[in-house]
Write a protein that binds this DNA or RNA. Sequence first.
RNA 1: GGAGAAGUGGCAGAGUGGUCGAAUGCGGCGGUCUUGAAAACCGUUGAGGGUUAGCGCCCUCCGGGGGUUCGAAUCCCUCCUUCUCCGCCA
Length: 444
Amino acid sequence: MPITARHLKARGLPMHDIRMIRDNPDAFDAAIGRVGAGAVSAGILALDEARRGAIGASEAAQAARNAASKLVGKAKADGDEAEFQRLRALMGDKKEEIARLEEEARRLDTQLHDMLLGLPNLPLGDVPDGADEDDNREIRRWGEPKVPGFQPKEHFELAAVQAGMDFATAAKLSGSRFVVLRGAVARLHRALAQFMLDVHVNENGLTETITPVLVREEAMYGTNQLPKFAEDSYQTTNGWWLIPTSEVTLTNTVREEMLDEAALPIRMCAHSQCFRSEAGSAGKDTSGMLRQHQFEKVEMVSITHPDRSLEEHDRMTRLAEDILQRLGLAYRTVVLCTGDLGFGARKTHDIEVWLPGQDTYREISSISVCGDFQARRMNARFRPQGGGKPEYVHTLNGSGLAVGRCLIAVLENGQQADGSVDLPGVLHGYLGGNSRIGADGVLS
RNA sequence: GGAGAAGUGGCAGAGUGGUCGAAUGCGGCGGUCUUGAAAACCGUUGAGGGUUAGCGCCCUCCGGGGGUUCGAAUCCCUCCUUCUCCGCCA
């Protein structure tokens, strides 16, 4: 019935403000053109105009019906049977007309909604233009990339992990891109997750959170995995989706909420399993546990006031970097260029950790500011202090960090000539006081 | 899996065919009082959309969808969700 976006609520609200597009079509095209969407405003505005015309016609018919409705009771009361019958007939006609006009308005509204739903977020002005990851701009480096005096190995080749990182058995259980961890390696993996959580919770003020990993469709729309990237995630036979990151659950905790401004920012972190189909990355990173269908990640999510999201972005980036510094792992931080930017992000920092075995930096964290893009999809708002209209919150997410990849980094950076691995000091306490994994795979 | 109950504004919670966008309370905002604050009192306060230079006017919304009726928060159907009890179970 309603012509508003309400009937589309289940799939989320449009993530672009149609009024903004109306007022600044050229600016919108320019911005969205930077992420390869071409000039789309003309099509959007044509549809929007048709939609608004249909809404106007529908509402005019409804107003006429409402006016007649007021008179009909009076006619009845006055005993004016002729007038009563005339108005009844009129309302009957209007009913059909309204149904027809509403249907048209709703059809156009849905069409516009779907068009907007498929458009990526707008990059911020300071995001560099570029085609792909080669055009990302480095903003800082920390630490000396470790180059040992011997030929370094990749993590899965190290003597210390041979017993504890079993791809063959995982393949038997599940297939490729899975791993079974045992003994010292499993414990190191757990230690890393614990360490990250402790830092974020005890020192950084994030609220430790445990969420479901199975979610309904709406949540996946909210954080823009749907509708465009359905093939990247897994769905259960009864319709749940396995989260590809706990960004989905943490961010959607404020879905449909009217928050108090004083409650912002809301800072959360979660350690969870993540599931990705890795469709489209066949043949990429096939050895080792760099790219798995199932992996663990400590995720950070912040819900902020619109004026505070950019500083929050920098804060979150520093928190992720801090984990690497404490682990003594060299890294570089880059700003993703327009060509590498994710669908829902306005700006993204990637942190790349040094991997001696690969002789390169590899992504270990990605921190994005989404502006109100996801908030619009989720209808997540706050009431400004001092009254006034509700506003959309801003959402941010970032890895803090990917646990599996961090394990790789610790192993490769700590490797010794004999195949053993020296472990970072901050982890010793999590490992029963042990400080290394011997070439025999045993902690000592 | 079986049996029940319920979904109303930022929140709580009335309302069972028109006079209901919706009592009341809390919260918010403005004011009186106060050195200031609290309390008390008075007033005010839903969301989305269309239209307008603006004032304003109009439309929709009581979980979603459909139906009955001149007329639906209220009656009927259906779906979704939540809760309670029983059973099973980590």
